[in-house]
Design a protein around this nucleic acid. Structure first.
Lengths: 296, 296
DNA sequence: GTCAGCGATAAAATCTGCTCATGGCAACGC
DNA sequence: GCGTTGCCATGAGCAGATTTTATCGCTGAC
C-alpha cells in the first residue's frame, strides 16, 4: 500500500516538474525522493512518471492515479483540521443523555447558550425515562455526558446543578387549590386518583416512594407516557400530579402547589473518568446556565 | 502527519469494536496497534477513542475525524484500483499526437477500433500542421505516441504504417481531368494557380519541394488553413491541389488523379524509448488497423 | 476469590526512511 | 569536440519507526 508520504512526493514532483526541486521543497534529499518514487511505482504495479532529460512527465497510469493521490492527501489534511477545530471547541458532535424532565426544564436554555457560544458543535440528545437507565447508558458509553439525578457510587466527575423541586398540580377549582400558604399536604391527597406515570418512568417510582413515606399508595387515574403531559392532565381535572416544578409551562392554566413534606432531588451533570475537552466545556456550561430554580 | 496505516488501524478498531479483534483482523499484535493509536492521537492532538472496560468508544474528536480517515483510505484504495485498471488497459488516458492529414485519414478507424476494444481508456488528440512540430512535441514529452512522417534519427521505437500516396485534385471539367491513365504530369500544371497550404503546414513545404523538383514554383491562388479544405477548394475550381489520397472523401465531386512523378511519404507511429503498456497497446493497434491504402 | 477479557507499557527485534557518496546520461556553451 | 552543468538512479550505512514478545493492571463475570 502506498504511504501518504509517497503520495506527497508524487504530487510535489508533478507540481514542481522535477525531482530535485520537489526534494528541496520537501526538505529531503533527491535520492530519498527518487527511492520513494520507485517504491510507490512498485506498489501500484507500474511507472507513474516518465523521466525525460530535463523534466518529468506523467504516464497514463500516473495521470489516472494523480487525482486520487491528491484526494487522499486532502482528506488526511482535513482530518487534522477537523481534529484541531474539535479541540478548539469549534466543531464536533457531543452526545448528551438526560432524563425526560431535564429535557423539558434545564436543557433548552443550556442548548440555546451552547449554540450561541459554539455554533459549529452539534448536539445529539438521548432521553431516558428513568435515572437508572440514564446511569446505565452513561456507564456503557452511550453518551459523553449525562444530566439527571445524582448517581450513587459514580466514580467519574459529578457536577451538581442544584435541587429540583417538585410541585403538586391541581385544577384551579379544586378545594385545595386556594391554599393561603401555597402548599398542600400530601396526606390530604391520599384518597385521590392520581395522574401517575407509565411503568419505567422514574417519576412513577418517585411518586410511589413519596406516597409510601406519607402512608398511602396512589391509585392511578391515568398513567402518562410523556412527562410533559402530567401537569396538563392534572389541570384538566384527571387528578393531582407530582411534577418537577421547572417543567410547568409559564402562564399555566392550573394550580401549582408546594407539597408537604417537600419533594426534592438533586440533579447533576456527570461524565466518565477522563472526559475530553468538548465534553468538559459542555458540562461547565450546564453548571453555569443550567442551575435549578426551585420555584421558577 | 497521520499515516494511512494508523488510519486503517483506527477504522478497524471502530468497526470491530475492540483493539484485540482489530489486531487479529489486520494480522498485527495488539501492542503494535495500541502504540500506533497513541501515536495517531498524539499527531492529531487529542484522544480519538475512549477505552471502556469491555469496549472502545469514539470521542467527539474521534467522531469528527473518522469520516475523513475513511475517505483517505478509500482514495488510497481507489488509486491502486485505477493503477491496476490502467495496467490492464481498462482505464486511463492516452495522449496522441498526429499531423493533420493523419487525423483525417488513418486515425478515425483506429480510434473506432480502440474505443471498441478499450472503452474505458480515453484518448486525447493533439494535431500538428508539420512533421517537424510533431517530432519536437514528441521529443519534449507532450504526447505518449506520435503518428506522422518517419522522423529522421529518432531513437525510440518506430512502427511503419506504409506509404501515404498523394493525389492531384482538379475540377471534373478541367481539360486534364479526363486522363485515360488516371494520371497527370505535374509539369503540365506548372502555370496554374494552386490551392496551396498556409505557411507552417508541412504540405506547403512538400508541394514547393515537389514542384521545385519538376522545375516550377507554384503560385498560390489560395492558402488553405485546413488540410481538409484543399480537395474541396480544388474541386470547386480554385486550382489544382496536391493532397494525401486518403483524405479525399468518398463520393467526391472532383477529379482525383495520380501525379507523375508519384508523390509519397512513409508514415509511422513512434514513441520514446520505454513506452508504458497502454502506449504500446495503442501503437500496436495503429499498426494493425491504420495501414495506409495507396488509393483507398 | 478466581479467571477471563482487554488494553497499556517496556524491552528487544526488525523494518523503513533518509543521508551521503557516486555514477550515468543528456543538454548546453565555448 | 570537450568540459561543465543539470538531473535522476543506485548503493551503503545509520537513525528512527514499527512490530513482536513478555508482562502488568483493571474490570466484569461466575
Amino acid at each position: 500500500m502506498a504511504t501518504l508520504r509517497q503520495l506527497e512526493y508524487l504530487v510535489t514532483v508533478v507540481d514542481t516538474g522535477s525531482f530535485t526541486r520537489a526534494a528541496e521543497q520537501l526538505h529531503v534529499t533527491q535520492p530519498a525522493l527518487s527511492h520513494q518514487m520507485r517504491a510507490l511505482e512498485a506498489a501500484v504495479g507500474g511507472p507513474l512518471l516518465e523521466r525525460l532529460p530535463r523534466s518529468v512527465r506523467l504516464t497514463p497510469m500516473g495521470r489516472a492515479v494523480l487525482p486520487h493521490a491528491r484526494a487522499a492527501l486532502a482528506e488526511a489534511e482535513r482530518l487534522h483540521t477537523v481534529a484541531r477545530r474539535t479541540a478548539g471547541l469549534e466543531e464536533g458532535e457531543l452526545e448528551v443523555a438526560a432524563i425526560y424532565s431535564v429535557s423539558l426544564g434545564i436543557l433548552p436554555p443550556v442548548l440555546r447558550a451552547w449554540r450561541r457560544l459554539h455554533p459549529g458543535v452539534r448536539i445529539r440528545l438521548r432521553e431516558y425515562p428513568h435515572a437508572d437507565l440514564l446511569r446505565a447508558a452513561m456507564a456503557a458509553g452511550r453518551a459523553d455526558v449525562a444530566i439527571g439525578p445524582v448517581p450513587d457510587g459514580w466514580e467519574g466527575p459529578i457536577r451538581e446543578l442544584g435541587v429540583e423541586e417538585f410541585a403538586v398540580v391541581l385544577p384551579v377549582d379544586d378545594p385545595l387549590a386556594d391554599s393561603p400558604t401555597g402548599t398542600v399536604a400530601l396526606a390530604e391527597l391520599a384518597d385521590r386518583d392520581w395522574v401517575h406515570y407509565a411503568p419505567g418512568n422514574g417519576l412513577a417510582d418517585l411518586l410511589d416512594h413519596v406516597a409510601a413515606q406519607v402512608g398511602f399508595h396512589p391509585r392511578a387515574a391515568v398513567r402518562a407516557e410523556q412527562t410533559s403531559a402530567a401537569p396538563l392532565l392534572a389541570a384538566a381535572g384527571l387528578g393531582p400530579a407530582l411534577v418537577p416544578a421547572n417543567i410547568v409551562p409559564p402562564h399555566f392554566d392550573g394550580a401549582v402547589l408546594r407539597p408537604h413534606p417537600p419533594v426534592r432531588r438533586t440533579l447533576a451533570a456527570y461524565t466518565r473518568t477522563r472526559p475530553d475537552a468538548l465534553t468538559v466545556a459542555f458540562a461547565d456550561l450546564v453548571v453555569g446556565v443550567g442551575c435549578v430554580d426551585p420555584a421558577g
